[in-house]
């Protein structure tokens, strides 16, 4: 009898814990846990540079903790598309955007939103490594100091953590106060990634981050992207088809301002639905 009682109490606690897990999942992920909330949602987006209609009627939804590759020939609008998310296009004269761009269900073009707050949430890594002419330590600490963090211990811990996350700690831990410009190109690019993640963004934008790097540095960055997606949502512009195939979960093919195809990377590279996508990825145009 006591055994039955024990079992039933255990079972009850299992049920309670299962229920609370479901409740937590629903709270975090919405009603249906199998359909997590989209990190980014874009609807009917059009962009212009003056009269030039650079992006036409773009619709896309990006899941959290995924890597999305943006591919297409030069001038197709993929970099413009990438720079929508940290509103860097706003700095270009004559740039205009119509449509809805939501990050975590919040309209990033609403009047209430402060662009600086948005850019804290959306980090960016550029084609050419661009460390500041400061020490390695100060490069990573820069964003923290700008954001008003003065506690030395917190800064030191964050710098170490960011350099570890960007797979650079082992190579620089003994020369943190040396000038960052003395690092190799690949190390400089990983330093820029460390700088971007130090302020804990939730999205990282990468604009051809390995195009200026040697193959070893290239593969280190690719491994890093693979690791970083556990924590961040990544959008990457690349001209390297194999890189897109290796690092991304989904791939978007842009052509002349249109989003021609957006699908699982596996599908895009084995059985694309659109002939233009097939011709581009097989190197028959572009």
């Amino acid at each position: 009898m006591s055994n039955i009682k024990k079992t039933s109490t255990k079972r009850q606690s299992e049920i309670v814990s299962a229920e609370s897990t479901t409740a937590i999942n629903e709270k975090l992920l919405g009603k249906n846990p199998s359909k997590p909330m989209k990190k980014i949602e874009i609807k009917n987006v059009h962009c212009w540079y003056g009269d030039f209609h650079v992006l036409r009627d773009i619709e896309m939804a990006v899941d959290p903790n995924t890597v999305t590759a943006l591919i297409g020939p030069s001038g197709c609008g993929k970099t413009t598309f990438l720079r929508i998310f940290n509103r860097m296009n706003d700095l270009i004269e004559g740039f205009r955007l119509e449509g809805e761009v939501m990050i975590d269900k919040k309209d990033i073009f609403s009047r209430e939103l402060r662009v600086n707050e948005l850019r804290k949430k959306v980090g960016m890594v550029f084609q050419k490594p661009n460390p500041f002419p400061k020490s390695i330590f100060e490069n990573v600490a820069y964003g923290l100091r700008v954001n008003g963090i003065t506690n030395k211990k917190i800064i030191a811990e964050t710098v170490e953590h960011s350099l570890k996350q960007s797979a650079l700690w082992g190579e620089v831990k003994d020369k943190l106060h040396k000038n960052a410009l003395g690092l190799s190109g690949g190390q400089q690019q990983r330093l820029c990634i460390a700088r971007a993640i130090a302020i804990e963004p939730s999205i990282i934008l990468m604009d051809e981050p390995t195009s200026a790097l040697d193959p070893i540095s290239n593969s280190k960055i690719e491994e890093l992207i693979y690791d970083l997606k556990q924590k961040y949502t990544i959008l990457i512009v690349t001209h390297n088809m194999q890189q897109a195939a290796r690092v991304s979960d989904r791939t978007a093919f842009f052509y002349l301002g249109d989003l021609v195809e957006f699908d699982e990377t596996k599908t895009i590279f084995t059985n694309p639905k659109n002939e233009k996508t097939q011709n581009y990825i097989t190197g028959r145009f572009g």
Binding site: M241, A245, F269, T270, Q278, T282
Partner: peptide, 9 residues
Amino acid sequence: FNPVAIDLR
């Protein structure tokens, strides 16, 4: 050549 799509198939 790292073929993809129809070439890979």
